[in-house]
Design a protein around this nucleic acid. Structure first.
Length: 260
DNA sequence: ATGGTAGTGGGACTA
């Protein structure tokens, strides 16, 4: 089974790219973030004609997560147990959706950005991650994939210039500890072993020609429970998807699983 | 400290 995650930065603006991506890589399950579409603006018929079922937690303008699957899509759950709903509950629910696809529990996650370290959104981000970790701790015995935009760069090599991020979110010790807590709970970054070396990014800002100069960040991850991680046979970042006009600012991350 | 670009929706906000 081929599983992918992609912060698409508007599903409707990029539906042609999404369909091309699914076909180019023969993807079975795609977790999307920043769909920027309400549920009544979905599903998109083109995806269904390609054989994909759609589960979405929508919110107009910002956020929105979805899961597309052509290997079954069962037990859809919007939000995780005890998820904090600071601010607009609808916006909170548009950050996490879970579904069982082909025997794998997939969670499409859009971790709160955090804005600035002195912003209330930063405390919300840490609280959100801690509660997700608490919920995820009880899922480690089953094949579970926590995928999406984590808005955390766990290592200094995961940003183009660590010096430029001094005092910024995404690289603080507290955020990195929140990420590490998932690893301590048993989840593994299943992509990094297949993408060795520095400067393997998943996100490049639109401005200042950051992609052309490869000044990016690695903030999109697939974390697998032990039963899932044991079945990973390969992974890659579809860097080419970020090139050209009309691209999302994030590249898709693809993982292959041997479920036999 | 600011602004650069993109998306939504048709202004201001988010990233």
């Amino acid at each position: 089974m081929r599983l992918a995650t992609w912060n698409v930065n508007s599903l409707r603006a990029r539906i042609d790219r999404v369909e091309a991506f699914l076909q180019r890589h023969d993807v079975d399950v795609l977790a999307l973030q920043e769909t920027k579409a309400r549920e009544d603006q979905l599903p998109l018929m083109g995806l269904q004609s390609l054989g994909y079922e759609v589960a979405a937690a929508g919110y107009s303008q910002w956020n929105g997560v979805a899961i597309l699957s052509r290997v079954g899509l069962d037990d859809v759950e919007v939000g995780f147990p005890d998820m904090p709903t600071w601010g607009d509950p609808a916006a909170a629910e548009a950050r996490a959706i879970g579904a069982t696809c082909g025997g794998v529990r997939v969670w499409s996650l859009y971790v709160p950005n955090g804005r600035k370290v002195d912003d209330p959104h930063y405390a919300y981000k840490l609280d959100w991650l801690a509660r997700l970790r608490d919920a995820a701790t009880s899922w480690t015995d089953t094949p579970t994939a926590l995928v999406g935009d984590w808005n955390i760069a766990p290592q200094d090599d995961d940003v183009f210039d660590i010096g430029a991020f001094a005092g910024s979110t995404h690289i603080t010790p507290a955020e990195r500890a929140a990420f590490a807590a998932f690893v301590e709970a048993g989840y593994a970054d299943v992509v990094r072993p297949h993408t060795p070396g520095p400067e393997v990014y998943t996100y490049w800002d639109y401005y200042r020609q950051r992609f052309e100069r490869n000044r990016g960040m690695r903030i999109d991850f697939v974390l697998g429970s032990p039963p899932l991680a044991a079945r990973v046979t390969g992974a890659f970042v579809d860097r080419d998807e970020r090139a050209g006009t009309g691209a999302s600012d994030h590249a898709p991350v693809v993982v292959d699983l041997d479920l036999d």
